[in-house]
Nucleic acid binder design. Structure first.
Length: 895
RNA sequence: GGCUUCUUAGCUCAGUUGGUUAGAGCAUUCGGCUUACAUCCGAAAGGUCGUGGGUUCGAGUCCCUCAGAAGCCACCA
């Protein structure tokens, strides 16, 4: 495509795939300094991010663009800064989620359950599923422009990573930090597996509190007891009261009769029981309640399980055996009513534990599971953040992190699933355990060759916890591992701080002896346009693919990055994305303008100019300011604010002012070349600054810009430009030079004058096409205004020939509207449009404004401010005061 | 119960070493197809920065109180 044919609107649809292809095949996503290659230089600093691996069979949702945008920005920025950047992509096998998906599919299409299929076949089918759908998510991530090194893509069930998992398990086991045993765990009856504490969500719901009688043995007396789950009465092994409770003290040590079943259980005393709550008597069901479990252990009570793995009542439930837990509740309560044991029920609001996955009510159950003794790991992980080896951004999450780790409980790592890393433990017929890195052929204790591997798989987060180093080759000391580990940033959502981040820190420290990353950056969650949580039931799901189809990837990325601050949730909706699509188009057209300007240059005659116009100097000074601000903001992870400032510079300063002035300067042979040069340089730098935010459109324009320059006398600009923006050098901030501030002030005066003239014209309904005459008294700005008269006339719609600029006027023009900007007086002779009374009113208002400012500033300067504030600041205010005094003076003269 | 965040224009939000006239996008009103862009340009209107107090020469910004909203963690049957 020749540049003359650049379309008027930016065509992201054809551009994005082409650019991504160019990047990927060009090898730009791979670290430029690769430890596996002969020219490797260990002194080049690496910058590494391990991607939070999405579910292998997942599909893009609105959370993905958030983290991809942030991480890609971090990577692109550091790449441009010269780091050897590596962004390791990959996917997670996501045990429960994937297994459920495949199970559902099998049931729907083949009407077969996983049990009918058998373990081996089911796992085989799941692998097939993975192969079939595993590429969807990674391709969608490509579409987002992610510059990750696909040659290093990993999957948590890859052989290498599986080896890492075994290594980790065996090491912990050998260190005595892994144990197996019956404990009270959270059981998901639908999924038929244990889940960890973190995988249980509590929701407040309406329930009922059931009051009933616990009859004393051989007596008509009873102890009233309240419960939310009457069916658990079947598993009661005691009734507890507070030792000081006068009401029940006499019963302590006696026996009560379990309703319906008739079992005798003791009345015990325990401080845990609150005398004020309920009836003051507590039924103890150690098999199905964590607190009761603790009490039972203190009192050596038997532990009775009444539920099977589907949460149906088991043989301990007498007549209710085989009934679902909720049916049993109803039936049992009805039977108790008949037996005269019921006191009352009342509505009660309580928190119900539900499975994070299925949403079903989770049952605390006694079950034999594998656990990690977490305290020593947690201690090290706490220390790493406390002593600053790991920084968490935003900082407030450190408190959350500390809180959780300080109260952490052992981690249940076994799951009764088939899809995942099988626990590397084998049992012989005599019950000996063999824990091994490689599949053993005989029992380590007795040599028996009849080995059966443990049926359970590991919690998905166990393998994710190794991600930053297992992806780099650990446990082997590969070149990648040695150079790229520890990684640099860990970027993810605050919602998985415990699930994932804390565990990576614990496991990283334990297995590698190093922190797995030095900075944790937590982004907020994406919400809908009006701040609601996104969910299928609310029906407010936002499909990022639709947004990209409609507005382009850059627009979506920019929306994610701008308007969000670290750790805070962000509202996203099509309106914002549309606005940012407009920005991409604005940039595109600014680019087109610059390129056309360059194309119109001849090929020889340009010498580097030193005679810059005010506008040239001004835009350059503003650009330098922007570079400094962006650098400062990036250092503080304020990417949103940085993006906003670049946006404002490009649109408000560059496009709205400089480009408008450049149109005039380009018509003039004397300023033509330098203007083209300024346009080119400013655009180039802007594109570099913006590239980490909106990589596609910037790369595309930059390519055209480079080509355009190549054929002109400005070719020299591109001397050290690489072949693609993605690897171009990041603009380095410079110390502000003395002239910058002065030029900015001069130009700002010009802008103020132009704006007030435009304002007046709009008020007076002067047709935009009509050029009007003006008489201007420039005062101390006389020279500046004379020099800029052409620019001023152009921007404000003045007739230059009929505009006179003098230092001061002896008398003001008749029939003219008057404006005062600082010390500059402007008269616009709008004959026939001037209403003298109206003029007077306006001037009086201006005068009042000036006076109120004078008053404010005089008061300010007469107070302690003058003594205590920094001198420069005081001077600034003094100058302002002086300015307002002059303005007031001028206005008074006019009245 | 513990911890955290939020409350700024009609709407959604920025505003991070405290600096004195608080910004953007969208929406609204008025005027424009000005030769990069109508996915645009110019202009306007709109805010006691939740409440009350404190620190300071100076507070949207720091501290405390209260009110409202949200989240995380732990949980008395």
């Amino acid at each position: 495509m020749t540049r003359q044919e650049l379309p008027k609107a930016y065509d992201f649809k054809s551009t994005e795939p082409r650019i991504y292809e160019m990047w990927e095949t060009g090898g730009y996503f791979q670290p430029h300094n690769d430890p596996n290659k002969p020219d490797f230089d260990p002194n080049v600093e690496p910058f590494v991010i391990a991607i939070p691996p999405p579910n292998v069979t997942g599909e893009l949702h609105i959370g993905h663009p958030m983290f991809i945008s942030v991480e890609d920005l971090m990577i692109r920025y550091h790449r441009m800064k010269g780091y050897s950047t590596l962004w390791i992509p990959g996917t997670d096998h996501a045990g429960i989620a994937t297994q459920l998906m495949v199970e559902r599919d099998l049931l729907r299409n083949e009407e077969v359950t996983r049990e009918e299929l058998g373990r081996e076949e089911f796992v085989k089918r799941t692998w097939e599923w993975k192969v079939k759908y595993g590429g969807i998510i990674t391709n969608q991530i490509r579409r987002l422009g992610a510059s990750c090194d696909w040659s290093r893509e990993r999957f948590t069930l890859d052989p290498g990573l599986s080896r890492a998992v075994r290594e980790a398990f065996v090491r912990l086991y050998e260190k005595g930090l892994i144990y197996r045993g019956p404990r009270l765990i959270n059981w998901s009856p639908g999924l038929k597996t244990a889940v960890s504490d973190l995988e249980v969500e509590y929701s407040e719901e309406e329930a009922a509190l059931y009051y009933f009688k616990y009859k004393l043995k051989d007596s008509d007396e009873f102890i009233p007891v309240a419960t939310i789950r009457p069916e658990t009465i079947l598993g009661d092994t005691a009734v507890a009261v507070h030792p000081d409770d006068e009401r029940y003290r006499k019963y302590i040590g006696q026996k009560v009769i379990v309703p319906i079943l008739g079992r005798e259980i003791p009345v015990i005393a325990d401080d845990y029981v609150s005398m004020e709550f309920g009836t003051g008597a507590l039924k103890i069901t150690p098999g199905h309640d964590p607190n009761d479990y603790a009490i039972a252990q203190r009192h050596n009570l038997p532990i009775l399980s009444i539920l099977d793995t589907s949460a149906k009542i088991n043989e301990n439930g007498g007549p209710y055996m085989g009934q679902d837990r909720f049916d049993a509740r109803k039936n049992m309560w009805a039977d108790m009513k008949k037996a005269g044991l019921v006191i009352k029920t009342e509505p009660y609001r309580t928190t119900i534990p539900r499975s994070q996955r299925g949403g079903e009510i989770v049952e605390p159950m006694i079950s034999t599971q594998w656990f990690v003794t977490i305290e020593p790991l947690a201690k090290a992980a706490l220390e790493a953040v406390r002593d600053g080896r790991i920084r968490i951004v935003p900082e407030r999450f450190e408190k959350t992190y500390f809180n959780w780790l300080e109260n952490i409980k052992d981690w249940c790592i076994s799951r009764q699933l088939w899809w995942g890393h099988r626990i590397p433990v084998w049992y012989c017929p005599d019950g000996h355990m063999t824990v091994a890195r490689e599949d053993p052929t005989q029992c380590a204790t007795c040599g028996s060759t009849e080995l059966r591997q443990d049926e359970d798989v590991l919690d998905t987060w166990f393998s994710s916890g190794l991600w930053p180093f297992s992806t780099l080759g650990w446990p082997d000391e590969t070149p990648d591992y040695k150079y790229f580990y520890p990684t640099t940033y860990m970027e993810t959502g605050y919602d998985i701080l415990f699930f994932w981040v804390a565990r990576m820190i614990m496991m990283g420290l334990e297995f590698t002896g190093q922190v797995p990353f030095n900075t944790v950056y937590l982004h907020g969650l994406v919400r809908d346009e009006i701040g609601r949580k996104i969910s299928k039931t609310t029906g407010n799901v936002i499909d990022p693919l639709v947004l990209m189809d409609e507005f382009g990837t850059d627009a979506l990325r920019f929306t994610m990055l701008v308007g969000s601050t670290p750790g805070n949730d962000t509202n996203v909706g099509p309106k914002k994305v549309e606005a940012n699509r407009n920005f991409a188009n604005k940039l595109w057209n600014a680019g087109r303008f610059v390129i056309n300007a360059i194309d119109s240059l001849d090929t020889v005659n340009h010498q580097p100019s030193t005679d810059w116009t005010l506008a040239d100097s001004w835009i350059w000074a503003k650009l330098q300011q922007l570079i400094r601000d962006v650098e400062r903001l990036f250092e503080n992870f304020q990417y949103g604010e940085a993006g906003r400032q670049i946006y404002e510079f490009i649109w408000n300063d560059f496009a709205d002012w400089y480009v408008e002035i450049a149109k005039e300067q380009l018509k003039n042979e004397e300023t033509k070349a330098q203007t083209a040069e300024t346009l080119a340089r400013v655009l180039d730098t802007s594109l570099r600054l913006l590239h980490p935010f909106t990589p596609f459109v910037t790369e595309e324009i930059w390519g055209h810009l480079r080509d355009a320059l190549y054929n002109t006398s400005l070719k020299g600009i591109t001397e050290d430009w690489p072949e693609a923006l993605i690897i171009a050098k990041w603009p380095e901030p410079r110390e502000p030079e003395g002239w910058e501030q002065a030029k900015i002030e001069d130009f700002t005066l010009l802008q103020d004058i132009v704006r007030s003239i435009r304002n007046l014209r709009a008020e007076k309904n002067v047709a935009p096409s009509r050029r009007i005459a003006a008489t201007i008294a420039g005062g101390p700005s006389l020279d500046l205004l004379r020099e800029q008269s052409r620019t001023m006339a152009l921007l404000a719609g003045l007739n230059e020939a009929e505009t006179s600029i003098t230092e001061s006027l002896n008398e003001k023009p008749k029939e003219a509207a008057a404006l005062v900007v600082g010390a500059v007086e402007i008269y616009l002779p709008l004959s026939g449009m001037i209403d003298l009374a109206e003029e007077r009113t306006r001037l009086e208002k201006d005068l009042r404004d000036a006076h109120s400012q004078i008053e404010r500033l005089e008061k300010l300067l007469s107070g302690d401010f003058a003594n205590k504030a920094p001198a420069a600041l005081v001077q600034k205010e003094k100058d302002k005061l002086e300015g307002y005094r002059k303005t007031a003076e001028k206005i008074e003269a006019q009245l």
